Computed example of a mutant assay.
Amino acid sequence: MTKRGSFGLHQLHDLISTGGSFTVSTARDLGLTRGVDQYRRETGRLGRPHHGLRTTAEPADLLDRARMAGLLLPPGGAIGRRTAADLMEVDPRLPSERGIDLDVECLVPLGATPLRRPGIRSYVTDLEPDEFDTGLGFPLTTPERTLADLLRWLPAHMALAVADRMARRKLVDLDGVEAILDRWHGHRFVRQARRLLDAVEPKSESYGESWLRLRLLDAGFPRPEAQIPILDGGLEIYRLDLGWPDLRIAVEYDGEEFHGSPEQQQHDADRRRDMFERHRWNVVGVGKAHVLGPTLLLEHGVGEMLGLRPRITHRSW
């Protein structure tokens, strides 16, 4: 007679305790297939979040979902792109995606079969062994490889915003990103990635500032300085988002969070009037609708201030 637990339940408990999830193929290799069936019957705790994967609990957050997807990766694969950035606490979501859970994105090496599961996006690419690590318990692309990918594949304004944030937080070595892009010379969207890498500004304090700066650069205007201090008696009294100090012209991004109420808007108006009357700075504020809108009103307005004509006739993002 077969005894209770003779299907290797103690081994199965050991397997589950390492992370709460395991692949069916791992259980099969260990001879635990019958034990898995018995465990499910006796506990009712074994879920199936993806084909070929078993877990004792539903994923609670992105880290759980990434860890589960990591179990399904072929050798040499890694979690990457937007998921990697998100796990580094750099939000890669488009404005229209704020507040939603993104699919887990992963990279699989050339010649491997991409993962096809709900909630997982898989990309076949070259991936060097030193471009990912396992510090979180599964392969995750390094900040340099993550940013190199995002500079290529994200919309330009979001790619620059993510790059600025990673540089500001000193998460990434920009020279390392350039070295990866050098390896991809002539590949798709690498020219965009190089242009955006040259535009990275670690001083940028918000995504809106990054978007605004890219529009000014796309228009062909001289690169503005970021976070310009205005001093009075040696003390900083104001700081301007973007501008050209030699011309005393500045452009600021008025985000909805800090500039949306009537009181905040009045404060902005008073501040800019004081900047002009006492310090001879011409400062204009622009909002999200101007920066992400479809027209070239922003470019023509700033161009008039600078005495320059925009070099573009249509938006590229």
Rank of each mutant, 00 (worst) to 15 (best):
R223F: 03
I180A: 11
P229L: 15
H187M: 13
R195N: 04
P222H: 10
D198C: 09
D175Y: 09
D175I: 07
G176A: 09
Q192H: 08
R168V: 12
P202R: 13
W184Q: 15
P222Y: 06
R195E: 06
R194S: 06
S210Q: 03
R213T: 00
Q192W: 03
R169L: 15
L174H: 05
G176D: 03
I228Y: 05
K203D: 00
R188I: 05
D173H: 14
G186Y: 03
A179C: 05
L216W: 01
V190T: 10
E178R: 14
P202M: 11
E178N: 12
R215F: 01
R169T: 10
R194F: 04
P229W: 13
L171R: 12
L212M: 08
A199G: 04
A179L: 14
V172I: 11
L181G: 09
Q192M: 14
R183L: 12
Y207F: 09
G220M: 14
V177T: 09
D175K: 12
L216N: 05
Q192T: 13
D182E: 15
E225M: 14
L171I: 10
D218K: 14
G176P: 11
Y207S: 07
L174M: 11
G220N: 11
Q227I: 04
D218Q: 15
K203N: 05
L214H: 03
H187K: 14
L174Q: 01
G208V: 06
R183P: 00
R188N: 02
A226F: 01
I230P: 02
L216P: 02
E178W: 01
E225W: 10
E205S: 03
S204V: 06
V200C: 05
P202S: 10
H185P: 01
W211F: 09
P222A: 14
A179H: 12
R213N: 06
R169I: 05
Q192E: 10
D218M: 14
P202E: 08
R188C: 07
W211K: 01
L214T: 01
H187R: 15
L197F: 00
